[in-house]
């Protein structure tokens, strides 16, 4: 993992040290309790001021697909994406899935967050992106 690379966008995930998985970052509104991913600075429900929170690392696949057209942003061909239900906060988030595990995803499969150099910034410069991976036997 080339952690010296910049992330594709700021404030999306936090890399933790070796042995601790990275976490997705979001926000929670203290007034109405709404979680947001990515984090927002104004609650879209009550216009309260959300606080930054960690949204955890684990989830379950709600749906998944493999995109086989010419990939955008230098993503691998093919690449996998899905909606993942986050265990800690209940949000359903769109996410990349581990391109090395194509063909092995199923709905309900437990997955955890990983971060690696995946795709570029639109101008060919490599970027870190979060993706979900499964602990497959």
């Amino acid at each position: 993992m080339k952690n010296e690379l910049p992330p594709f966008a700021p404030g999306i995930f936090r890399l933790n040290g070796a042995g601790t998985p990275p976490v997705l970052l979001g926000s929670r509104c203290p007034d109405c309790g709404r979680h947001c991913f990515p984090a927002c600075d104004l609650c879209p429900d009550c216009l309260g001021t959300p606080a930054s929170v960690e949204l955890g690392s684990s989830g379950r696949i709600y749906s998944h697909t493999v995109v086989r057209t010419k990939p955008p942003l230098g993503l691998p061909a093919p690449y996998a994406v899905g909606y993942v239900d986050l265990v800690d906060c209940g949000l359903r988030v769109f996410a990349l899935l581990d391109p090395a595990q194509i063909g092995r995803f199923s709905i309900g499969l437990p997955v955890r967050l990983a971060v690696a150099a995946l795709g570029n910034d639109g101008h060919g410069e490599p970027r870190l992106r979060p993706y979900f991976t499964a602990d497959l036997a």
């Binding site: 990515p38 998944h64 697909t65 995109v67």
Partner: peptide, 27 residues
């Protein structure tokens, strides 16, 4: 391929229109 807006995180994570509907189809 068309997408919902290049500034949006989903687009930056590879959400293209056919994928959006493929995810509905699989579900």
């Amino acid at each position: 391929l068309l997408h919902g807006g290049s500034a949006e995180i989903e687009t930056q994570l590879g959400l293209v229109m056919p994928a959006s509907f493929a995810l509905r189809a699989i579900r």
